[in-house]
């Protein structure tokens, strides 16, 4: 059974942009933040806010289609899978997310669940 956490509404995230959610150090894959993206067509995706390359904050990248370009070295990361696109190789962990009744819900990650 997945725990869903209400993180706000679509309007809280800029179109073709992202917001972050912060939590304690190292609780998800050693990372500190989740990035929640809103695409041009209003889909929402959540990834750990770190590029697989040099841990660049993906939330600050340019969102195009269903990808984000990392702000540090322009790696393109697929928002749905977290996979680096093109010749680059690497993968950022994804977090399940859904929209329900105008709210955005993300799955409580397993490590957090254990901590709770």
């Amino acid at each position: 059974m997945t725990d869903w956490i209400d993180i706000g509404t679509l309007a809280d995230i800029p179109q073709r942009g992202a917001r972050t959610i912060r939590f304690g150090d190292g609780q998800i894959a050693g990372a500190k933040e989740i990035a929640v993206f809103r695409t041009g067509d209003d889909h929402v995706f959540a990834l750990v806010n770190e590029c697989p390359h040099k841990k660049g904050p993906l939330s600050q990248g340019i969102v195009h289609g269903h990808s984000v370009a990392c702000p540090l070295h322009n790696w393109n990361i697929a928002l749905k899978t977290g996979e680096a696109q093109g010749a680059d190789e690497g993968c950022t962990p994804t977090i399940a997310v859904k929209q329900e009744g105008g709210r955005i819900l993300i799955a409580r990650p397993a490590s957090l669940k254990a901590a709770a």
């Binding site: 939590f23 304690g24 609780q27 709770a116």
Partner: peptide
């Protein structure tokens, strides 16, 4: 950052 309704901060 966004503030979840069930804040991570507590956890």
């Amino acid at each position: 950052p966004l503030e979840p309704r069930m804040p991570f901060g507590v956890i």
